[in-house]
Design a protein around this nucleic acid. Structure first.
Length: 574
RNA sequence: GCACCCGUAGCUCAGAUGGAUAGAGCGUCAGACUCCGACUCUGAAGGCCGUGGGUUCGAGCCCCGCCGGGUGUACCA
């Protein structure tokens, strides 16, 4: 059940019946709530196309809707708006319909298999704050897609095959260290040191590049070293993602694409796409009408080593064979957008995307960066890269202080658990309330506050709602039919609930969890007003009490579902 | 240099295919608990939508110029 598309459907039919394009019937939520619930502006463009008076067209269309019992009123307004108001009975029956359905009448899409490539952790070092956004946004989009009926395959896609590997190996050699005896902390020091040294020491840089090539060629000694520190790092990364409550179906890395790389090169060669340039193998991916610079994509470096584009192509071949996906979504920050344009074009040219039936659609679902108060990428106080685990710890630590202030009777482990729920909600909602593509400013105090557009505010709303429901159960009250709303507060809440369906579809279409945050805050605000203004348990009218309990139950279910998609858990008490 | 993204209230951000009076949250000010959880709610003030042109009956949104910020521009990922 999708109220906007239902109404659009009705209006489209009315436009068609009057001899206009049905597409003029698009209905949106009203931007004048004082006048109506929903509006249709189609008469305005229709008037332009047919050289008629828009208000007249609106009138013709509105005339066709006068007998539709769902509407309390259908009015026109200059210059040509069609204003729709639903009847209280319609609002009640919409809500009752949702409440009676296990799935809340929420939509299901034509199922596809979608591979989610997010994470992108590098095995040479720990996760840092830059890994946060792709991880939690990807996580939310996985759950959203699954809820809408798609088959989801998530893959962490570790960076474990490129130059950083050679840099670590070369540095270990220089220091005479054994990969078996180092720790993750050592790695976190070794890799940046090696990386920096490559910038100043040409001989070392060459050595690192050569070690990378040797690793890829299969030199047994080099591979043994690589395997050791890789295992060490993967173990650490798994715990870090667990700490973030993000799980992956597959823990593949670039190295898992290695068996597919020769075939990729063959495919490209057969099509005559591979070209030698300065000793390297490249594929031209520029198109004649490109405005932006589109350099050729490098498939093999002059020293014979592969680069990450090569493994991306190999991985695509592997995914095609293992999962037969309709779509592959790559989640990284915006800086890699040129890279993915090149990879997608190259894969298309090479026939790697073509399946028996159709073609795999690849999307770069990029995100902006998380910045500090200065508007620059978030750093530690010392100006270094902030580790993700440290960020989580400090958020949870601050959340613990809040939990302690609340003075609720809790055991020590319960308090710790509550702090984690609060902190993670603050982090997730603080991030995802912003549109994916925008940079945003990380502000711990603001995110953790219980007032405002925050995770804790949403959690508190649901906790309060459930608290009443629990008391109702204890008192033996049961929910009943939702009645036509007797008050404005109830009507406003009933108007928001059927919009969840549309929000889910829009969030999917835009790949934007922020759309879900928006509807959550809208519902929470309306619910809190309703809750404040009306008695529920003490409502003297039994039928109205039962109706309000049902409304609470429905609100709880919808909010819980949306929060669950976002990865936000609800504590018992706050 | 070239290309892409961005500039909306003091702050952080929304603004659906171009449509009515540009919306939230925070902060500020003024209010609301004998009552289901006040971590809540109500109200007010606050804007030449970076800037100058253009298209349109109508522009925050589309086109061009300028100013300011970010990112990218083959042997890194």
């Amino acid at each position: 059940m999708n109220i906007l598309s239902d109404l659009s459907h009705t209006l489209s039919a009315a436009f068609a019946a009057c001899g206009y394009e049905p597409s003029y019937g698009a209905v949106t939520v009203s931007n004048r709530p004082d006048l109506c619930h929903f509006q249709c502006n189609g008469a305005l463009p229709a008037a332009k196309a047919h050289k008629k008076n828009p208000l007249m067209i609106a009138g013709e269309v509105a005339e066709r809707l006068q007998n539709d019992a769902r509407f309390a009123s259908v009015e026109t307004a200059p210059p040509g708006f069609i204003n729709l108001r639903l009847s209280d009975g319609t609002l009640a029956s919409l809500a009752n319909g949702m409440a009676a359905d296990e799935r809340l009448l929420l939509p299901r899409m034509e199922p596809k298999t979608i591979v989610f490539d997010y994470g992108g952790a590098n095995v040479a070092k720990s996760l840092h704050v830059g890994h946060l956004r792709p991880a939690i946004i990807g996580d939310a989009l996985c759950r959203l897609s699954r809820f809408l009926g798609h088959t989801v395959v998530s893959d962490v896609h570790l960076g474990d095959w490129g130059l950083p590997m050679g840099q670590v190996i070369a540095e270990l050699e220089e220091r005479g260290l054994d990969a078996a005896s180092i720790t993750v902390e050592d790695l976190n020091e070794i890799y940046p040191a090696a990386s920096a040294r490559c910038g100043t020491d040409a001989a070392f840089a060459e050595k690192a590049a050569e070690r990378t090539a040797s690793l890829q060629r299969g030199d047994p000694e080099i591979r043994a070293v690589w395997k050791r520190f890789r295992a060490l790092s993967v173990d650490h990364l798994k715990r870090s993602y667990e700490n973030l409550d993000v799980a992956f179906d597959y823990w593949y890395g670039e190295s898992d694409a290695e068996p597919y790389v020769p075939r990729v090169k063959d495919m490209l060669r057969e099509k005559g796409l591979l070209r030698e340039s300065e000793g390297a193998l490249v594929v031209d991916v520029a198109l004649p009408d490109d405005k932006e610079p589109m350099p050729p994509m490098m498939v093999q470096k002059s020293n014979g080593a592969d680069v990450y584009g090569t493994t991306d192509l190999g991985m695509l071949l592997q995914r095609r064979e293992d999962f037969d996906p309709g779509e592959v979504w790559y989640m990284t920050d915006i800086r890699q957008s040129l890279h993915f344009k090149q990879v997608f074009r190259c894969a298309k040219l090479g026939g790697i995307l073509d399946m028996g039936g159709g073609s795999i659609q690849c999307l770069h679902v990029w995100n902006g960066t998380m910045n500090g108060a200065d508007g620059k990428p978030y750093k530690t106080r010392e100006g270094g890269v902030m580790r993700l685990n440290d960020l989580i710890s400090s958020v949870v630590e601050n959340a613990l202080r809040k939990v302690e202030e609340s003075n609720l009777p809790m055991t020590e482990p319960e308090r710790a658990e509550a702090a984690r729920m609060l902190g993670m909600a603050a982090l997730r909602v603080g991030d995802m309330q912003n549109h994916r593509t925008k940079d945003y400013i990380f502000d711990m105090d603001r995110f953790l506050a219980s007032e405002g557009k925050t995770g804790p505010y949403l959690q508190y709303t649901v906790v309060r709602c459930r608290s009443v429901l629990a008391k109702a159960r204890d008192a033996g009250f049961i929910a009943g039919e939702i009645l036509p709303p007797p008050t404005d507060a109830e009507r406003d809440l009933l108007l928001a609930l059927p919009l969840v369906s549309d929000a889910l579809l829009r969030a999917f279409a835009d790949k934007a969890p922020s759309v879900l945050c928006e509807i959550l805050f809208d519902i929470a605000g309306r619910f809190n007003r309703f809750y404040f203004e009306h008695k529920i348990l003490q409502c003297p009218d039994g039928a109205l009490r039962a109706s309000r309990l049902a409304l609470l139950g429905l609100t709880d279910r919808l909010m819980t579902l949306l929060l669950d998609i976002l990865g936000v858990k609800i504590p018992l008490h706050m």
